[in-house]
Design a binder for these strands. Structure first.
Lengths: 184, 184
DNA sequence: GGAGCCATGTAACATGTTACATGATTAT
DNA sequence: ATAATCATGTAACATGTTACATGGCTCC
């Protein structure tokens, strides 16, 4: 699959970046909602991409002597990125979800503990949704940017992340509604 | 984290099972929507659980001489499972999603190819939703079973999986709606 | 001068996938 | 008989996390 390879190629295709920049993107408000990696994964992968001649590297001096490696995409890199973007593969395996797994075994909890677990999770997803909508206001003022700009991709996936949270929240509320009323 | 450990404990807690049974559950209509593992991961984990004395194992002969290992949960296993179910941990990292990653880089595609990619994905998620709702009709007749039964967990997570597909479908339709109209 | 960030890397470990390997049972 | 499924395991590899390790730059 080598998805990390294409994630890095896609970022460098937007503009030349260092490994540090790429890692920062992977922990940003946009990308982190559907892809991420630690720097310990990024640097070795950049090495592989160099070997495969999909990126080139220029050493830049920051200040007195700090060396940064600024990576750029090659024509072959662009070609492979485009090929990957055009793919039509079967649906990926469904994402793993530890909370859903715990709910699957809910009959081993008391109804009170089940309700408590659902409420705690609900709260967290409500906060996450608020966090995402705040970013949406700040970055896009809830207006879709023009297609063919990088901002369009940012906007689409952020909107998707918000919708995902809304759906999760609605699901938990459904589950809570199905739990019996407290005995007085 | 050792989530696989708890997934296996949770299953064996419902009733004694073999490694083969567990693997089958991990590829079923319920569980596979939020957790799964291959048999090559299950058998070694069962070995670890034996070492930790969280499960016991009884050899059963099937037919003439086929040996099955039927695993049961121990009191200590039950205790650890319950502890895990009661946890209140921060939200997991957001699930990775290759299609969203490709959409993030959509400005590198032509608008036509972007629409094509969105349409292909839409179709797949519509099929998946139909697949899930069919199972819902068959297994539960759209009626929530009583809380405190294992079927309640099955129902909850299946409902969640359907809602997840509905949300994904709505997102893709949003994206398509934002794409410009075809020229004449 | 020190805190926090910029910048790059490696090592050990945990998790997960694909392939290799073997053999019994059941239904056609 | 033979194909599909039941049943259990290991090996090699890919992916991802945590910890170790080093040093420069910028702002206070």
């Amino acid at each position: 699959m080598r998805t990390l390879k294409y994630a890095i190629l896609g970022l460098i295709n937007r503009e030349p970046m260092t490994g540090y920049d790429i890692t920062r993107e992977f922990n940003s408000n946009n990308l982190a909602n559907f892809w991420y990696a630690k720097h310990s994964q990024v640097y070795p992968e950049l090495g592989r991409l160099m070997e495969e001649k999909l990126v080139t590297c220029e050493v830049v001096i920051q200040g007195e002597k700090l060396e940064k490696k600024l990576y750029s995409i090659t024509p072959e890199g662009k070609a492979q990125l485009l090929e990957w973007l055009m793919k039509n593969e079967p649906l990926e395996a469904t994402p793993k979800d530890v909370f859903r797994l715990r709910m699957y075994f809910s009959d081993f909890m008391t109804p009170e503990e089940l309700k408590n677990q659902l409420s705690l999770q609900l709260e967290k997803h409500i906060l996450k949704k608020k966090y995402l909508t705040d970013i949406m206001h700040e970055n896009h003022h809830d207006q879709a940017p023009a297609i063919t700009t990088p901002e369009f991709g940012d906007f689409m996936v952020l909107e998707g992340a918000i919708m995902r949270e809304e759906s999760y929240i609605a699901w938990i509320q459904n589950c809570l509604a199905r739990c019996p009323e407290e005995e007085k």
